Amino acid sequence: METIKILVTGGAGFIGGNFVQYMVNKYPHYHIYNLDALTYAGDLLKHRDIEKKENYHFIQANIIDRKRIFSIFEEFKFDYVVHFAAESHVDRSIQDPEIFVRTNVLGTQVLLDAVKQYGVTKFIHVSTDEVYGELDLDPHTFFTEESPLQPNSPYSASKAASDLLVRSYYETYQIPINITRCSNNYGPFHYPEKLIPLTILRVLNNRKVPIYGDGKNIRDWLHVMDHCQALDMILHQGKIGEVYNIGGHNERTNIEVVKTIIKRLGKSENLIEFVPDRLGHDKRYAINPSKLEKLGWKPFYTFETGIAQTIQWYVDNKWWWERFDL
């Protein structure tokens, strides 16, 4: 059997890390190469259960290091690339946009140039629904793959720019690509600067939970394992050149999410602390994933089952998160 080599960039992060574990365990005959710069949100402890498996390999490198990336492509001759590596925290992008442009735009270009030179069967660019901007509060409106890109933060602008770069390399150089745009992910190994893990860990430690503005901003929540299964399907069945939206059909306001977590952990809503709203805070995101569902994908988790599983994971895995400054 021919060995399939898959490069996963950002495989020490949250979504990329879950995808690495999913692929290593599901496809023992594939070789999964986890490339990560190990910035503040990168973490290899999460891979302690797979790090000794013969089909898992770790490479420490930064995607903006052109010489290093090209040498890695030259050495390993990857069949597929699944590109997660990105700066992703909106608050940090407001404070320092430059690192987002450097990693998300220039880093993506380096990878595309390597793919162009060395060739792969498919390059999957993992993006975000935030590139579409914000929706109004009409529950009948959704982002589709044809929605215009109207990013409202430096983070989402950098992701939109990288999306357009990927598209241009497909149109100009015929590089085989897919672009995926997902709604907000949650689940195990989520770095605790994001809403759901921060809330769970603050509540477990009886500390105040900050909520921006009035807490009525709406997000469509997708369990990270549903995202991994969607990417698996797109990798193997997605039509070259196409964009696929990945959403969970789970719209909730931020305050609903926080109150759900507090209730499940049996704590008081007095832990909630409203703080001044974030600059450029989008009101609502919601995805229509029907294009992907026609390939046969549908989410396994409802928000209720997914948040229960996630909360229990954090309760059971203090070894992973107790080292973070919360």
Rank of each mutant, 00 (worst) to 15 (best):
G280T: 07
V115F: 03
F73E: 09
I69L: 05
S162D: 12
F189Y: 11
H227E: 15
I59C: 03
R167S: 14
T199K: 10
K291F: 12
M23S: 11
K46Y: 02
K77N: 15
G266P: 12
N185C: 05
K208C: 07
P276Y: 02
A308C: 06
P299I: 02
I175W: 02
Q21E: 14
F76M: 06
E75A: 07
F19T: 11
Q21G: 10
T172F: 03
I218Q: 02
L35K: 11
R102L: 06
H57S: 00
P197R: 03
S93L: 06
L231F: 03
D282M: 01
F142R: 06
S88M: 01
S290P: 13
H281V: 11
G17W: 02
Q21F: 10
K216V: 14
G10W: 00
I4G: 10
G280H: 14
I4S: 10
S183P: 14
P289I: 00
K298H: 08
F189G: 02
T253F: 01
G296M: 00
G107R: 04
I32A: 02
S153T: 15
N25L: 05
K294P: 14
R219H: 10
L271Y: 09
N250C: 10
F189H: 06
Y301G: 12
R284W: 01
E74M: 06
G248E: 01
C182S: 12
Q95C: 08
H31A: 03
D282Y: 07
I262W: 03
L222Q: 07
R48I: 10
N185A: 02
H223R: 13
P197Q: 04
N206P: 12
I240Q: 15
D113G: 00
K46L: 04
K67R: 14
I262Q: 05
Q21L: 07
I177F: 14
N288K: 10
V224M: 01
T305G: 02
D91A: 15
W320G: 08
A157E: 09
H140C: 01
K283G: 14
V20M: 00
Y186K: 09
Y22E: 09
N205M: 08
L222W: 03
L112R: 01
D91K: 13
G11W: 02
D214M: 05
D226Y: 00
T103N: 05
T9K: 03
I311K: 08
G213K: 07
V101I: 03
H89W: 12
G13I: 00
T260S: 15
V101Y: 07
D325W: 10
G247R: 07
E322K: 14
K216A: 11
K259W: 07
F142W: 06
E273K: 08
P28E: 00
N270I: 08
H29E: 15
E146Y: 12
F303N: 04
